[in-house]
Write a protein that binds this DNA or RNA. Structure first.
Lengths: 106, 106
DNA sequence: ATCGTTAATCGACGATAGTCGATATATGGG
DNA sequence: CCCATATATCGACTATCGTCGATTAACGAT
């Protein structure tokens, strides 16, 4: 009857990743460019501090919205198109439709 | 280049409404029943306090995920299927696809 | 009008989250 | 080996959030 707590927490954590305006801006920035960006480029474009950007990128990477690859002294972040499009819609979560598991998105 | 802050805030507020496990449970509860529920019924089913449920219902109603109608001494809450299905997916927000305005969902 | 029931609001508390500045860590070049 | 650059982590501060208990407000019935 009631959705199991653990399942609700997992869905919530996905929505939580986009529940911040700065993260929305970062994600949309990465998506509009179809090329990877360094942290420095994102900092310059976003208007918030470097440590803040790094913090948000970590959160976005934990739910696989973005992928990271180190190259030399810099980190290249890019959008994970597969994961973004398999992100559950509100309708899916709410209606109990099957939702692809998080590890399925690479 | 960068998504305007106001737009990002609006998207974030929608995701924020589902960024809590208890709210996910309440919304999915209302969606599985296709009939309205009173606050008391939701309290009994959800396992959290009455004031907490009322608080969450208010948040869900503000973004139009649920609709409320007073009947006698009780309030009947039901899912707003139209608004749920027009909720922007991560892909829409991120890729810059047109997103239906919030007032369009009734 | 009063009482009982239902729901919304208030006040408080602890926990979490966003931001910053400073520091630490890694990496490549001279 | 040391330095410069790029990023990650840490510590602190503030603001917001989720939850509760208590109170208030709305409504129906007696």
């Amino acid at each position: 009857m009631l959705l199991p707590r653990a399942e609700a927490e997992e869905y919530a954590s996905w929505f939580k990743a986009l529940a911040d305006a700065t993260r929305i801006q970062i994600v949309s920035l990465l998506a509009r460019r179809h090329a990877p960006m360094t942290v420095g480029e994102i900092v310059a474009a976003s208007g918030v501090g470097q440590s803040t950007v790094s913090h948000h990128l970590k959160i976005l990477a934990e739910v696989r919205f973005v992928l990271v690859e180190r190259q030399g002294t810099s980190s290249l972040y890019r959008i994970n198109e597969a994961c973004v499009s398999c992100f559950p819609t509100a309708a899916d979560v709410v209606m109990g439709n099957p939702v692809p598991a998080s590890p399925a998105c690479d």
